[in-house]
């Protein structure tokens, strides 16, 4: 007989980090939050020195985050623990935890009144109403097919969710809270953003970004970027789009007007989520290496540094909410 345990290897540093002091004050250049999904911690880095200021222990598995519309609170979903953590983004102080079913990806609507949360594991999408301080579950939709990432239309009327298991995107009305339509986009779609009247969908089971016309529900174009296309991130100044590809380990730069490739950067380690600092550098989680990369897009030079295991979501805390919404 043996104790049948699913205890997996995690980093002993996760335990060691519990001994580190909490951050109590804001950093001059802001803070960077890294969600270490593999060792159950939120790592808070000083953006200027890149030194770790604190680690916030979580119960299970953190993947994605979102800033509240006023930028005052950072929401981090701990999917395995059925918890949402509320953090002061300026100081790294944990404000509260709230029981909430299996939060994976999350994002606020442009008007700030709605928070949509996907649950990859249980095949559901939850739509919450947000009054500035509290969440109220308005609707739970059963959407088998591994609901993954989400994006809103600019008119706040529709939220679009990729379904990895079925290779589709579903549009959900924020008025009726019912699905409006579903359309096939390609195998295992992941990241999705609204861009100039179209939806850009990263097709992880293939090598491209699908350009989906939400009016006709058809894919009108496919942009080949690299195998395992995972997510799309607009630069804060709107001058570029960045696409991460996890199999080919690269970031592809797209012209936002023409959607043509302007450059491709080699980023070993499985680039996943991206955030931007004030200098326009990309801070990228390297999922399979337990590191983050800081990339100068002008030169393509990348420095890496160790974080926790399987880092996933990342956010430069001074990033405007609109730029960070839904894709981290």
């Amino acid at each position: 007989m043996r104790l049948r345990s699913t205890l997996h290897l995690r980093l002993i540093a996760g335990a060691m980090a519990l001994l580190l002091p909490w951050a109590g004050s804001a950093a001059a250049d802001g803070l960077v939050y890294v969600l270490n999904s593999g060792d159950a911690t939120i790592q808070v880095l000083d953006a200027s020195t890149r030194q770790e200021r604190s680690r916030i222990p979580v119960l299970r598995e953190v993947h994605h985050l979102a800033l509240t519309p006023d930028g005052s609170t950072l929401l981090v979903g701990d999917s395995g623990a059925n918890e949402m953590l509320f953090i002061n983004p300026a100081t790294g102080e944990l404000l509260k935890r709230e029981a909430l079913s299996n939060p994976y990806h999350l994002g606020f609507s442009p008007d700030g009144g709605t928070l949509t949360i996907t649950s990859l594991r249980r095949g559901q999408v939850d739509v919450y109403r947000w009054d500035g301080s509290k969440l109220r579950l308005a609707k739970r939709l059963d959407l088998p097919g591994m609901p993954s990432h989400l994006a809103y239309g600019p008119d706040n009327k529709v939220v679009y969710v990729t379904l990895q298991g079925s290779g589709t995107v579903v549009a959900i009305s924020l008025d009726t809270l019912e699905p409006l339509w579903t359309t096939e986009v390609g195998p295992e779609p992941a990241g999705i953003i609204w861009h100039k009247g179209r939806l850009l969908v990263a097709i992880m089971g293939s090598d491209h970004v699908a350009v989906l016309d939400p009016a006709t529900h058809t894919v009108e174009r496919r942009i080949s970027v690299g195998r395992g296309a995972h997510a799309v991130f607009p630069a804060p100044d709107g001058k570029l789009l960045y696409v991460t590809s996890r199999v080919d380990s690269r970031i592809t730069l797209l012209d936002p007007e023409t959607l043509t490739i302007t450059r491709s950067l080699s980023v070993p380690g499985g680039p996943d989520c991206v955030t931007f600092d004030a200098q326009g550098r990309l801070w990228v989680t390297l999922r399979w290496k337990g590191r983050i990369g800081i990339i100068d897009p002008a030169t393509g030079a990348m420095e890496t540094q160790r974080v926790g295991r399987s880092p996933h979501g990342i956010l430069f805390a001074t990033t405007p909410p609109a730029a960070s919404a839904a894709t981290n």
Binding site: S5, T6, R10, L11, D39, A40, T41, L59, G80, A81
Partner: peptide, 10 residues
């Protein structure tokens, strides 16, 4: 009861 925290390989 949830599953146990796993950051204690030792």
């Amino acid at each position: 009861i949830g599953v146990p925290p796993g950051q204690f390989p030792v």
